[in-house]
């Protein structure tokens, strides 16, 4: 048994299996589009989270850092969008531009000193940012209206044309997600992306090769903050309402779950993870009181049987095939 069975495993089948998570998630999306109703809403939220998690993946998956504070950037941009469109009559696009600028400046100010920290320290520092922004959203009532939140936010619209139907919004979000995933893919395949994975591999080794670790960490932080900002603004326009709870700590927990269940560091991971994690609670709704229990059990099973994420499921099949080959 010297010949490795992984080599004999047909390449076409492997590629087919690699596309499986994509096809499954896209299938659910298409189904939601035709069925409409509640599933459309669930999928809209899922797609917004895809954007958020895709950004987080750049920072955590590609660059190997940890952030518990990206909800802050979503909140900054989301609240800016909400405030400018409701109180100052801004159109959604320029309002988002302002929100993005605010989120990026904040990321720069926060990231420059904290990205010199490593591991746990960086994680704690980012956690603090999330908590601070949450407190500001609660306390600065003249702008944010505190716990009451801001309502009556207009839907997404470009050049006077508003997308009001749920299907329209879903289609729009699908385009955004496709673009975000494309950008994420281009980042990973680029010189910049390779430098990030070098930093993730070993900061010292990367620096000894002339790769400025702190600069690349900061760039990845800014890029992921931009994704978070986009997700934050999309949310307020899709829902039409924003309150501090929207960007609370649970957003971080949810995003982490999506990232790990989908597959951290992979391109399909955020998409697959966000769709699955958004659908799971709905699938267990019939269990009533046991819904959370079933959800928790499903998560544990997913992480046991697909520890590197669902988007790497093809390698799981490959392992099974390898095992079978050894047995026979």
């Amino acid at each position: 048994m010297t010949k490795s069975p992984t080599i004999t495993f047909p390449d076409m089948t492997r590629r087919g299996l690699g596309a499986l998570p994509w096809i499954a998630a896209a299938g659910v999306l298409a189904y939601a589009f035709f069925v409409g109703g509640y599933l459309t809403t669930v999928m809209s939220f899922a797609l917004i989270y895809v954007v958020f998690v895709t950004g987080l993946n750049v920072f955590m998956g590609y660059a190997g850092q940890v952030s518990f504070g990206h909800n802050a950037f979503a909140a900054l941009s989301g609240y800016t969008s909400a405030y400018l469109t409701t109180s100052h009559g801004f159109a959604p696009l320029p309002a988002f531009g302002a929100g993005l600028a605010l989120a990026l400046s904040c990321a720069l100010i926060v990231g420059y000193p904290t990205l010199r920290l490593k591991g746990h320290y960086l994680a704690m520092a980012t956690l603090a940012i999330g908590l601070i922004v949450y407190e500001v959203a609660v306390e600065w009532t003249s702008v944010t209206q505190g716990y009451m939140g801001i309502s009556g936010i207009p839907p997404i619209g470009i050049a006077g044309y508003e997308i009001t139907s749920e299907r329209g919004q879903l289609a729009f979000l699908t385009v955004i997600v496709a673009l975000a995933t494309l950008v994420s893919w281009r980042i990973r395949e680029s010189r910049f992306g390779r430098a990030l994975s070098a930093v993730a591999g070993s900061e010292d080794a990367a620096r000894a090769l002339g790769i400025s670790a702190s600069r690349y960490k900061l760039s990845a932080f800014l890029a992921s903050a931009a994704f978070a900002a986009l997700a934050g603004s999309l949310f307020v326009h899709v829902v039409g309402f924003v309150s501090p709870e929207v960007y609370g700590l649970h957003m971080v927990v949810l995003a982490f779950t999506m990232l790990y269940v989908g597959g951290i560091g992979t391109i399909a991971g955020p998409f697959v993870g966000a769709v699955i994690i958004s659908l799971l609670p709905e699938m267990f709704r019939q269990f009533k009181d046991y819904q959370d229990l079933a959800y928790g059990a499903a998560l544990i099973l997913l992480l046991i049987y697909a520890p590197r994420g669902l988007s790497t499921i093809s390698s799981l099949f490959r392992r099974a095939a390898a095992k079978k080959a050894v047995v026979s």
């Binding site: 010189r191 390779r194 430098a195 994975s197 070098a198 010292d204 080794a205 090769l209 002339g210 790769i211």
Partner: peptide, 24 residues
């Protein structure tokens, strides 16, 4: 240029990619 203790190669990357990063 330093070749660090414990080699510091980038394990998940291919040999070619490692060399490419050397010429960064």
């Amino acid at each position: 240029v330093l070749v660090p203790e414990g080699r510091g190669i980038f394990g998940p990357m291919s040999v070619a990619e490692n060399l490419e990063l050397g010429a960064y």
